[in-house]
Design a binder for these strands. Structure first.
Length: 591
RNA sequence: GCUGGAGUAGCUCAGUCGGUAGAGCACGUCCUUGGUAAGGACGGGGUCACGGGUUCAAUUCCCGUCUCCAGCUCCA
């Protein structure tokens, strides 16, 4: 995970705000230094939503001290020290920062003879700038959190304390930012998952494994149903493979060498096993189980494959990073000359799926050949070109991450942002020249000889868990009609209308709609409120008038009261609700 | 895994400077039979995350563990 916006982009984009936040970072470091003179300073840049400073104070800082630091910052701001740049020789800088090991290290890493310093009042920092004119210009700031961060981002180095804060030109903008953070909190899938009864984690069962409750499982079924249908329509063959394999498989695949830390391993009757962290070996064993002809390629094996990865405890995050998850995973075995066409189809497929779920904005990254690679340069070039072609054919903007491909092949990742702007990898399309070698995957060519296949690994949603989490945040829990766990609720006005309400329920249900009856002894208003909070698209209210007329008073969660309708008109309206499927039967909303 | 913070009813939280706890919502029963976002009364429900230690006594203090939160590292 990580923020896509680079510092340079930010600089160019919003230089004045950059300078303001950078100055705020200096003032914060200055304040901490006043409070704890032995503090050693590292770095303090502006970032997308604010700034931070990494420092190594003589005592551990806690959030309770943030107001104290803020108060000291306010003093420095009031003193209105001008920021003044100066330039000194590196040797002088090293002397100047004696007792500041991180600064010394930074100075020594700078090219050239001179280094740039910025001074405000008694405080001088190694810095290229730019800054605002004087500390008094920082009028709206707030410290947000204290966290740990490794020196130079390396976990083998000492962990420093990082204080996050933010700064804006006006208090109004700062306030707006705080409001945005609160809104994002309301969209948090972990909170909504609980409120809407979608899923839970159970402490007793262990971390990172998801329990889908009935409403969450309904949504999952709808998604599965949709995804399965599309795969069938696009020539994928469904397969199902085991969850545990003897470790011989994992030795052969290389997972035991490269992935062991992430694997759940166990033993039975003296035989070592591993729970699958990936589905590829299972699909490979199916492909390899018989002689393959060039005529049948590409072979596309698809599975909703559940995998388990022993992720480090600290990285787990709601549904977005879990230990057990199910991928919409396929492996395609083909000839190298088929690669281009197949990749184009896969990308087209991936974008279709993202659009169906309302994700119009995503980031696409192409990772190319790394230093260490296997296979032929020609093969890599063909694969990279194929990936580029496919992207450009779709008019998709993408960024290239040069040399970031896997050792076995280049790949495309599709990333979506969550409610607070963190981006998460969902779909991935990877070319693979390695596993076909390791498992000796071949086909009989037209020449009667045996040839090596190429493999594509791809998942479009990525995993149901992560995708579901993103979907919840994307819609803030208000799923579109076709995905809503409960699409309509029948609300009888009094218990005299319950029999009629059951008739309505039966007819709507028979039309394939996920509908429930709320026959609690509550006032209609209370039932409406609960239905609104549950974000149910349709409320079908039946009182004496409707029963007499044989109609239903329809309320929509967004449009409110839309008036009484005859059953036929109601069913027609529900039928007209937009569905995502462009392929196949078009009845993806049905469950 | 690391740094910091937190775990009290199904949920959101209050509280106890050591004497085994409370609110709102939810849930149950009864009353109420209503017209587009909360009708009323009564009631049930907690090994205060778990395990040790100190103490006459631990939800409260100490140690350990687990889980969660923010960030770092990682994400094949």
């Amino acid at each position: 995970m990580g923020h896509a916006g680079s510092k340079d982009a930010l600089k160019a984009q919003d230089a004045p705000l950059f300078a303001l936040r950078h100055s705020a970072a200096h003032i914060m470091a200055q304040a901490v230094t006043r409070l704890y003179p032995q503090t050693k300073l590292a770095i303090g840049p502006p970032i997308e939503d604010g700034f931070y400073y990494d420092l190594d104070p003589p005592v551990a800082l806690t959030e309770e001290q943030l107001p104290v630091i803020e108060a000291e910052m306010a003093k420095i701001i009031k003193e209105n020290h001008p920021f003044q740049q100066s330039s000194i020789a590196k040797a002088d800088a090293v002397r100047r920062f004696a007792g500041q090991p991180y600064k010394t290290e930074l100075v020594q890493g700078i090219a050239g003879e001179q280094v740039s310093l910025y001074t405000d009042g008694e405080f001088t920092d190694l810095c290229e700038g730019p800054h605002v004119g004087a500390t008094g210009e920082v009028k709206a700031f707030k410290l947000l959190a204290v966290a740990g961060a490794y020196w130079r981002g390396d976990e083998h180095n000492k962990q420093l304390q990082r204080i996050y804060g933010t700064a804006y030109f006006t208090p109004e903008e700062l306030q707006a930012h705080v409001v945005r953070l609160e809104e994002a909190k309301r969209r948090d899938h972990r909170r909504l998952g609980k409120e809407l009864g979608l899923f839970s984690f159970e402490e007793l069962a262990g971390p990172g494994v998801v329990f889908y409750h009935p409403k969450g499982a309904r949504v999952r079924w709808v998604i599965e149903d949709y995804v399965r249908r599309l795969h069938l329509a696009r020539g994928y063959e469904p397969v199902a493979t085991p969850h545990i394999f003897r470790t011989d498989v994992w030795k052969r695949s290389g997972h035991l060498d490269h992935y062991q830390d992430y694997m759940f391993l166990f033993e039975s009757e003296g035989m070592p096993y591993g729970v699958k962290p990936m589905n590829c070996p299972g699909h490979i064993l199916i492909f390899a189980s018989t002689t393959r002809s060039y005529r049948e390629l590409p072979v596309r094996l698809f599975e909703l494959g559940t995998v388990y990865r022993n992720e480090k405890s600290g990285v787990l995050h709601g549904l977005l990073r879990v230990r057990g998850f199910t991928q919409d995973d396929a492996h395609i075995f083909l000839r190298e000359d088929q690669l281009v066409g197949e990749l184009r189809e896969i990308l087209d497929f991936a974008f279709e799926v993202l659009r169906a779920f309302g994700f119009e904005q995503y980031e696409v990254e192409l990772s190319t050949r790394p230093e260490q690679f296997i296979g032929t340069v020609a093969g890599w070039d063909a694969a990279e070109l194929a990936l580029r072609d496919a992207l450009e054919a779709g008019g998709v903007p993408y960024t290239v991450r040069a040399g970031e491909g896997a050792f076995y092949g280049p790949k495309i990742d599709l990333k979506i942002r969550d409610a607070i702007g963190r981006s998460w990898q969902c779909g991935t399309v990877q070319c693979d020249f390695a596993l076909p070698e390791r498992f000796d995957l071949t086909y009989a060519g037209a020449d009667g000889r045996s040839h090596r296949v190429v493999m594509i690994h791809r998942a479009l949603l990525g995993s149901f868990e992560r995708f579901f989490g993103m979907l919840i945040e994307h819609y803030a829990g208000a799923f579109p009609f076709w995905l809503a766990p409960v699409q309509a609720v029948v609300i009888p006005l009094t218990d005299r209308q319950v029999p009629y309400a059951r008739t309505v329920l039966g007819r709507v249900r028979a039309a394939g709609v996920r509908v429930e009856l709320d026959e609690r002894n509550e006032k209609m208003q209370a039932k409406i409120r609960d239905a609104q909070l549950a974000k149910i698209p349709y409320m079908l209210i039946v009182g004496g008038r409707e029963e007499t007329a044989g109609t239903v008073a329809v309320r929509h969660r967004k449009d409110g009261d839309v008036g009484a309708m005859a059953m036929e008109a109601l069913l027609a309206r529900l039928r007209d609700e937009p569905l995502p499927a462009q392929h196949g039967s078009g009845q993806a909303g049905a469950l």
